[in-house]
Design a protein around this nucleic acid. Structure first.
Lengths: 329, 329
DNA sequence: CTGAAAGCGCTTACAG
DNA sequence: CTGAAAGCGCTTACAG
C-alpha cells in the first residue's frame, strides 16, 4: 500500500509537507503542492483513516443504532441521515439491536471503541441504563423518536398526531373507536399515542370500552390477531372504527376485516400511522400520518454535525407531521 | 479515555501482557489474567479499534455498497448480511451510490482507505472501470446480483425465474403478454429477465408485439406510466397479461389498470418479481417471485468470511427462488 | 510466563 | 515555507 512516506519520497519533500498539502493546513509552496498532488493523483493514494483517526481522534464516521434494519421507517431515516452526512464526507457505521435493549447499550460502547465521531440512536425505549451508557460514552449522541432526558432528542409529535387522527374519526360520526397499540416500554408509540386516543375520546364524551383495546407488536400479523380478538371480545358491542398505531398493524387488521366480509370504511373505518408505501396501495388506501422520516434523518444528521462543531443545539426538537386522508375512513 | 497503558499500570503488568490476555494470544498466567480482566471490567475499557487496525491491518468492518438504501430488496439483503456478520463481531460500513456509477467506484477506494476487511457490492451494472477498481483495491470483494467477471458473485437465477413466470402466464392461456423491463445496463434485471420472456414466448410459438414492451426505471410511477403507454400504443391489439420485472412496477401498472376499470386478473393478469411486502397486501394480491434476499445476504456474508480466512470460494453462486402464486393471474 | 522495543501511518507543535 | 521528532494506542517478534 502506498503511504504518506512514499508520496513524500516521490515528491521529494518531507511527509510533514505532504500532510499539510493534503489537509490544507499551514503553508505549502505552490511548487511543492503541485508536485505532491501530481504524485497523489498518479498513485491513487488515500490516507489511512485508521492512522488519521488514531492521531486526530476523529474518524469521519457516525454510528447508527437502530431497532430493526428491515422496517420502512428505519430505512427512511437512515437514508436521510446518509444523504446529509455524505455531503460532509462522513460515512455510516450501522448496528442493529434486533430490539434487544442490552445490545443497544453494548453498541454504544462498541461504537465508541471504533472511534465514531457521534452516534444517532433510533430509540424505541427509555431506561436508566441506556441514559447512563450515553452519558458515559462522552461522544455526542442524538436520539430520534424518543425523548431521552439529558440527550438531544428529535421527536415526532406523537401526541398531537394521534389526537388529530382520533378527532378525525370522531368527527366522521364514530362513537365506538377501537385501538391497537404497543407496549408502554416504548413511550412514544406505546404511551403518547394511546394517551392522545383516550384523551380525545374522553373530551368528546365518548367511552372507551376496554374490550376494544388491544396491544400488538408492530407486526402485520399482530394487527390481524388483535383485530380478531377485539371483534370476538366485543360481540354485540362492536366498534365501528379502528385506530392502529402503525400502518402495518392497521393493514393486518384490514386483512382480517376483509376476510370476514367487513366493508372498509362502511362497516369499519381504519387508520394507521407511518405513511408506509403499502398504505397507499392497499385497498382501500389507508388514512395515515406522514412523519417525514427522511427529513427527520436529515435533520438529525445536521444537528449532529453542528454539535461536532461545538455549536450549541437545543435539547429537544419536535418534528412536524401531516395527516393523509384516504379511503379507509 | 482509558488505554491499554492504564490497564497495564493498574494490573501491574506490561501492556504486552494485557494485549495477550485480551486477545488470548500467547501465555498469560492465570493470576495475571484475572487481575487484568477485573480491571478491564471495572473500567469498561475497550481497545481502540483505530490503533488495532493500524497495527494489524484488519478492522472488523465490512463495507457495503448499495444502489439505494430505501428499497426493500437492499434492506433485506443488508439485514441478512448484518445478521451473519454480527455473529462474528463484524460491523457494517454503509455507503449508498444513489445509482451513480462513479460513486460506486469512489466508494470502493474510500472503503479501502477506511481499512475495511472486505466489501460486499450490491451491483446494478457491469462495466470495465468497476471491474478494474475492484481488482486494484486488493481487498476481497463480493458481488450480489450481477455476475462480475473475475469477482466472486452471488447471483439470482433471473433467467429461469423470468422463464417460469412467463411459462405460467402462457399456461393460463394468455397469448398476448406485455412486458415492462428496465435498462439493459443492468444485465440481470434488464437483460436476463427480458431475454427469458422473449425466449419463452417464442418457444411457445407466440409473437411479441413491440408495442407491448416498455421500459421503466424500477419506480411504482414508471410502472403506472408504462402500462398507460402500452395500452395506448396497442389499441385494438391489447395484451391480456403483463409481466413487470419488479413488484413495484407491477403495482404501479395495477394502479393504472384499476383506475381504468380493468379487472385483474380477468381483463389483465399481472405478475412481478421480488415478493415485496406490498405484493401480498395489494388487491388482488400479486403473483411474484421470492428471491430470498435475506438468505442471499447471509450467504454473501458467510462467503466473505470464508474468503477472509483464505479459504477458496467458488467464483459464482446461483441462488434459488420460489414462485408465489397469488390472485393477480 | 513476561517485558522492552519497534513500528503501523498519520498530524502537530516546535524550531529554523 | 519546510522538516525532524514525538506520539496517538495498539501488537508482535524477540529475548529472557
Amino acid at each position: 500500500m502506498t503511504t504518506i512516506n512514499d508520496i513524500a519520497k516521490l515528491a521529494e519533500v518531507s511527509r510533514t509537507t505532504v500532510s499539510r498539502a493534503l489537509n490544507n493546513s499551514g503553508y505549502v509552496s505552490e511548487d511543492a503542492r503541485k508536485r505532491i498532488m501530481k504524485i497523489v493523483e498518479e498513485t491513487g493514494y488515500m490516507p489511512s483513516q485508521s492512522a488519521k483517526s488514531l492521531r486526530t481522534k476523529r474518524s469521519g464516521v457516525i454510528g447508527i443504532i437502530l431497532p430493526r434494519l428491515s422496517t420502512e421507517t428505519s430505512t427512511r431515516v437512515v437514508a436521510g441521515i446518509n444523504e446529509e452526512l455524505a455531503k460532509e464526507g462522513f460515512q455510516i457505521l450501522l448496528t442493529d439491536t434486533e430490539l434487544d435493549k442490552q445490545k443497544e447499550i453494548d453498541y454504544i460502547r462498541l461504537l465508541k471503541s471504533r472511534h465514531v465521531d457521534g452516534i444517532i440512536l433510533l430509540a424505541t425505549n427509555v431506561n436508566e441504563q441506556l441514559i447512563k451508557a450515553i452519558k458515559d460514552v462522552e461522544i455526542p449522541v442524538l436520539a430520534i423518536g424518543q425523548e431521552l432526558p439529558g440527550v438531544p432528542s428529535l421527536v415526532y409529535d406523537d401526541y398531537h398526531a394521534a389526537a388529530d387522527l382520533t378527532n378525525m374519526i370522531i368527527q366522521k360520526g364514530h362513537e365506538r373507536v377501537a385501538f391497537i397499540g404497543v407496549t408502554k416500554e416504548d413511550p412514544s408509540v406505546g404511551g403518547l399515542r394511546e394517551q392522545a386516543y383516550r384523551d380525545k375520546m374522553e373530551q368528546s364524551g365518548l367511552e372507551v370500552q376496554e374490550s376494544w383495546v388491544g396491544e400488538g407488536d408492530f407486526s402485520i400479523e399482530s394487527g390481524y390477531e388483535q383485530m380478531k380478538s377485539i371483534l370476538k371480545r366485543s360481540k354485540g358491542n362492536e366498534p365501528t372504527a379502528l385506530f392502529a398505531v402503525t400502518d402495518r398493524m392497521a393493514i393486518g387488521a384490514m386483512e382480517y376485516l376483509k376476510e370476514q366480509g367487513y366493508r372498509i370504511p362502511e362497516d369499519m373505518a381504519v387508520v394507521g400511522i407511518g405513511a408506509s408505501a403499502m398504505s397507499k396501495y392497499v385497498t382501500p388506501s389507508l388514512t395515515t400520518i406522514d412523519y417525514h422520516n427522511a427529513e427527520a434523518g436529515k435533520k438529525a444528521a445536521h444537528l449532529l454535525m453542528r454539535k461536532l462543531k461545538n455549536e450549541k443545539i437545543e435539547e429537544k426538537f419536535e418534528l412536524t407531521y401531516r395527516l393523509i386522508s384516504r379511503n379507509s375512513v
